[in-house]
């Protein structure tokens, strides 16, 4: 079952075309990594999926229908920036979520151990928390109503490596309990690490969407044989290793040490380095 279906999404803001023909298909139970550099259109896409921005063209469906406020009973959202009340205590922020969703506020305490928080942390003002702690509280707030779908915009951005691993583990656990995740990131390694499916956006266009059954490779060279995989004539091509022979691919080499994920780009390696900057 498709949880999110985005077809040919286009959006202009103040006369600038920010998105053109963006396509995203997220199946139930997947972790979908939405990868792109800063300014590529990730946040605009997620905001349009959430109904915060109106699309100029294209179609967005969540659980098979157009987004409305009723959907948010089943959709947890974590923004790139914090949106909880900064002057309120952590517990009051979480209580507010409980009251909105009519949840027993004792549920809050079930999350403390999972998120490695202490009861004392609940009394602290939200604005007094570290960035990583704030992100954890925002995630608790999103997960309290037990949503089926979690949408996170750059959930690990600006966090230290240990906290990034914590957050990634939380997303993986959510999936293991039957949830579906759509998250954006500019960190290729991170996307590769936890996603089942990846969509790559560049300059407002989806370059490719692919299931991550095996490591992905960006390739450089003459790709006339790859016409069917060519993405609107752009510089990037992505194919799994198993298709190398099929497409007579040669000259495959890794760019930087990215574990299983190697990048090779027709437009030059500088582009790759930027994608991986964090």
């Amino acid at each position: 079952m498709k949880v999110i279906e985005v077809k040919n999404l286009s959006k202009s803001i103040n006369g600038n075309q920010v998105l053109k023909d963006v396509n995203i298909n997220v199946e139930e139970g997947q972790i979908y990594g939405f990868l792109g550099r800063n300014g590529a259109g990730k946040t605009t896409t997620l905001r349009t999926i959430l109904g915060l921005l109106k699309q100029d063209a294209g179609e967005v469906k969540i659980f098979g229908s157009n987004i409305s406020f009723e959907h948010f009973s089943d959709v947890g959202v974590v923004f790139e920036y914090e949106t909880l009340n900064p002057d309120w205590s952590v517990i009051d922020n979480l209580r507010q979520t409980c009251y909105i969703y009519s949840i027993d506020e004792r549920e809050i305490f079930k999350f403390l151990k999972i998120f490695e928080l202490e009861e004392n942390d609940l009394k602290k003002r939200f604005s007094a928390l570290s960035k990583g702690m704030k992100r954890k509280v925002s995630l608790i707030s999103a997960l309290l109503p037990n949503p089926k779908l979690l949408i996170c915009d750059e959930p690990t951005s600006g966090l230290d490596p240990e906290m990034q691993i914590n957050i990634r583990n939380i997303l993986v656990n959510f999936q293991a309990n039957g949830g579906t995740v759509l998250f954006s990131s500019h960190n290729l390694y991170e996307v590769q690490k936890i996603s089942n499916r990846v969509g790559i956006i560049q300059k407002g266009e989806t370059l490719i969407e692919v299931d991550l059954k095996e490591p992905l490779y960006y390739l450089e060279g003459n790709f006339n044989e790859l016409a069917e995989r060519k993405v609107r004539g752009k510089d990037y091509y992505i194919i799994p290793e198993s298709e190398f022979k099929l497409h007579n691919v040669e000259n495959v080499k890794p760019v930087k040490d990215l574990e299983e994920l190697y990048l090779l780009v027709t437009g030059g390696k500088d582009e790759v380095v930027e994608i991986n900057q964090n």
Binding site: F72, T83, Y101, P145
Partner: peptide, 19 residues
């Protein structure tokens, strides 16, 4: 004003109650 500058109201549009 302060809440607006802290983006508090963005969350109000992604909750299951009419904003």
């Amino acid at each position: 004003d302060r809440d607006k500058m802290n983006n508090v109201y963005h969350r109000y549009f992604v909750l299951p109650v009419k904003p």
